[in-house]
Design a protein around this nucleic acid. Structure first.
Lengths: 165, 165
DNA sequence: AGAATTGGACAACCAAGTTGACGATAACCG
DNA sequence: CGGTTATCGTCAACTTGGTTGTCCAATTCT
């Protein structure tokens, strides 16, 4: 992957190995997620896992079913059902019957789930503000614009779980 | 996480939800990795998985042992040993005795492993060139500089496996 | 020499996915 | 209307990639 495979003392401006770009993208993503969940843990949500944010987003404010959740997350309905079971045991979601369709069971966020979602939204904004403080607002805007250029897809493709396989 | 949680028709320039930044970072990372492995598969390495790149990098050109590999990757020596077993069965690494220490078994890349590594390096460079074609060289340089600013850590922290847990 | 550390392997387990099957309910349509 | 088809939830068995704990052999430390 690199012409200088094991020297940690490389100059950052010199010829970087080709995998620096994806690796740094991942490091940045991970840094934000880790920081978010550290703060969430300090605010009363120690069991909130990185994946849960995606699931909460996919559930949405009106609730869904396990099968639909699976479609949105890009996993099987069985896997989605298991995840719902975990989140239910953690008190983040509740499952109720659908009066209009006896097959469906509607998954909804509990007030605790909504609290976690609101806090994570606030924390994400805080972290973005910290990025703006470090880079400058215009640099951050340009950075985000470039990022959108290179990832033209829908932001709402939430099929993140199950990746890395 | 958002004031407009389920509307896919949002304007990209309007008030983005706070999680857009981390999500786009991840999408960009994933796009590069997926593209890399699609091309690798087309060039004779269909079994090469995203995680293997990190492992190969951690093995390095001189080889390592399973225990050391585990330390570099941030996983247990047992997990590293299992991964070595998988890569050995795929023909990417070979395990030999260490004449200087009868406990150690040295893991080395085979020629096939080196081939995969060289190809992935070339593909990463190609993709970076495509980014430069799209964004312009100066924008890409600025983008990478900002990325380094926000991820000051060592590039060589390869403890990516086992994350997302 | 004897004690402490290290490397590798085995077992049992866990978490989060997968596929396949199945019964109950709903929707489609001739 | 009724039969076929599709969907929802669930169960079971399996896969992958981790974990911890235990153990022995080999090396290193004092």
């Amino acid at each position: 992957m690199s012409r200088r495979p094991a020297s940690p003392d490389r100059d950052a401006d010199a010829d970087a190995p080709g995998f620096e770009l994806p690796l740094r993208l991942f490091m940045a993503f991970r840094a934000i997620i880790d920081e978010t969940h550290a703060r969430l843990a300090a605010e009363g949500h120690p069991d909130f896992r990185p994946m849960h944010g995606f699931v909460f987003q996919a559930i949405g404010p009106h609730g869904t079913t396990a099968a639909d959740l699976g479609r949105r997350l890009g996993v099987s309905k069985q896997a989605a059902g298991k995840t719902v079971g975990v989140l239910e045991r953690l008190g983040y979601v509740e499952v109720g019957a659908d009066p209009a369709d006896a097959r469906r069971k509607v998954v909804r966020l509990t007030s605790r789930g909504i609290d976690a979602l609101a806090r994570s939204a606030r924390i994400f904004e805080e972290i973005r503000t910290e990025w703006a403080d470090t880079l400058g607002t215009d640099r951050l805007r340009a950075f985000e614009a470039d990022l959108r250029t290179m990832t033209p897809g829908e932001l709402w493709r939430l099929d993140v779980p199950g990746w890395f396989a």
